[in-house]
Every structure is written in C-alpha cells, then in structure tokens.
C-alpha cells in the first residue's frame, strides 16, 4: 500500500484522503484512530476544559457521576462511563472494572491482588484494581 504525505495547499485545513478498493481491517483501524478524539470536554467546578485524551490516566464512575483523572488532577465528565468508553473505544482505554476504564499506556506494572483480581500501578503512582471478570479482556488486548 502506497502512503503519500503532503503539505495542504495554503489556507486549507489538514485532511486525510483514503483511497482504497476494499476496506481492509488495517484501513478500518487507521480510520478509527483518525476519528478518535484528541480531547474530551471535562468540568473543573464551573470551568469547562478540553483535556487531551493522551493525558488521561483513568476514569471512574462514583455514585452515578463520572470522574476523569489526569496525572495530578481530577475532573468531572458529564458523559456516563459507558459513553466515555464508547468515545474512547479506538484509543488505548480499556475497561478494568464495572466502574473504571484505564489508559493502558499509563500502566507501569501489574501485580496479583488475590481473589483473581490484579492491581495496576499507574505511572503517576496511583493504583487501580482490575476485576476478575475483566482480566480476560486485558489478556486479549495484550494478545495473551
């Protein structure tokens, strides 16, 4: 497959044109990645912010509210956790328990936590629990 990258004409916005005869899985994956958002809208009190997806460590649902955790700060999202999960489905996020999705690129290491669960230490020092029922999905994600 030939890949051409060129500068857009002056005054025009960036665009990606995909020219294929058949839609292969690789191309579909590339499209998904391109469609995935760079930022999501979060709230810090009354302030509305755009948070880069790559900077999110994990998101959790607490008492029906969704909180998004960056390296050292916590924001509120108005999306339900499953909506956030759907939005980030093409990114590196993975559901690890009924109330948590985590950015797998932010996991430093994984250790057994007993009872079939694992604990994942994140690069910011926080620890999240991977529930027993989501361990198979994690293994599948890593091709195990």
């Amino acid at each position: 497959m030939k890949i051409i990258i060129q500068d857009p004409p002056p005054g025009e916005e960036d665009r990606v044109i995909i020219s294929v005869k058949t839609m292969s899985e690789r191309v579909a994956r590339a499209i998904n990645i391109l469609k995935s958002p760079d930022d999501i809208t979060v709230y810090d009190g009354d302030k509305v912010l755009m948070l880069p997806v790559a900077g999110i460590f994990y998101a959790e649902s607490v008492d029906l509210k969704t909180y998004v955790y960056a390296e050292k700060s916590v924001f509120r999202s108005r999306l339900k956790l499953y909506e956030l999960e759907e939005l980030l489905v093409t990114t590196d996020f993975l559901r690890i328990s009924k109330q948590t999705i985590v950015n797998v690129r932010k996991i430093r290491n994984i250790a057994p936590a007993g009872d079939g669960r694992f604990s994942a230490k994140l690069t910011n020092g926080e620890t999240v629990i991977i529930s027993r029922q989501y361990v198979p999905a994690l293994k599948e994600r890593f091709g195990l």
Binding site: V104, N109, I110, P112, F118, K139, F142, G143, L144
Partner: peptide, 13 residues
C-alpha cells in the same frame, strides 16, 4: 496462581 499471568502482562506492557 496469578503470578505467571502478571509476568506475561508486564512483559507486554
């Protein structure tokens, strides 16, 4: 019994 899985996961990480 979970240690082996954890090692494999860490390798992939």
């Amino acid at each position: 019994s979970q240690l082996k899985t954890a090692k494999e996961l860490n390798k992939q990480l």
